[in-house]
Simulated scan of single mutants.
Amino acid sequence: MQAIAAEPETGLVDVAFKVNGERTKLSLDPRVTLLDALRERLGLTGTKKGCDRGQCGACTVHVDDRRVLSCLTLTASLQGKEVTTIEGIAHGDELHPVQQAFIDHDGFQCGFCTSGQIMSAVKVVGEREIRTDDQIREAMSGNICRCGAYPNILEAIKQAKDGR
């Protein structure tokens, strides 16, 4: 009886999902985070690596229309899901209203947290029950700005929420 040589197992997993409306399929280590897959495998560097511990919110993206911290999300868990990054919220050359509001109100200083702030703010703007300044602050509390641009971020969110 002759032994059949097995191919060495690679340990990689295949994951098919959409990113900003485009289908993608990756073969990767099951421990690879969405943040690292976006930045290193797909070249989408708008999502920032801040703390890499889920504490700062700089890596916020949307998965199936919900805010998630991409540094804590394993890419292998995204089979069949839809991911939206900061690169995917504008319509061509037309900025998303939240992006425009951040520009109008100087809602950024160093800009490092801005993509995560904007991705969270997009969801906050769409939530009807969030109306007051305190409710906005609470909803945005998972996103930290090291520069302290919070008053400007608040005004930007209020502008986008009011449709001004």
Rank of each mutant, 00 (worst) to 15 (best):
T10V: 04
T10G: 09
G11C: 05
L12R: 15
V13M: 01
V15P: 11
V15H: 09
A16N: 09
F17P: 08
F17K: 06
F17W: 05
K18P: 12
V19Y: 00
N20R: 14
G21H: 11
G21V: 14
K25A: 14
S27G: 12
L28T: 15
R31G: 06
L34S: 09
L35F: 05
L35H: 03
R39I: 06
E40M: 10
R41I: 00
R41S: 04
R41G: 00
T45G: 04
T45I: 09
G46C: 11
T47M: 01
G50K: 02
D52T: 08
D52P: 08
R53F: 10
G54M: 07
C56P: 01
G57H: 00
G57T: 02
A58Q: 08
C59D: 00
C59R: 00
V61W: 01
V61R: 01
H62E: 14
V63A: 06
V63P: 06
D64C: 12
R66H: 08
R67F: 03
V68A: 06
L69C: 13
S70I: 05
C71R: 00
K81F: 15
V83L: 03
T85P: 03
T85L: 02
E87P: 11
I89Q: 04
I89D: 04
I89K: 02
G92N: 15
D93Q: 15
A101S: 08
F102Q: 02
H105P: 07
G107R: 03
G111D: 10
C113V: 04
T114I: 02
G116E: 00
I118L: 07
M119Y: 01
S120F: 09
S120W: 08
A121N: 09
V124Y: 08
V124K: 07
V125R: 06
G126H: 07
R128P: 11
E129R: 04
D133M: 10
D134G: 13
D134T: 14
R137I: 12
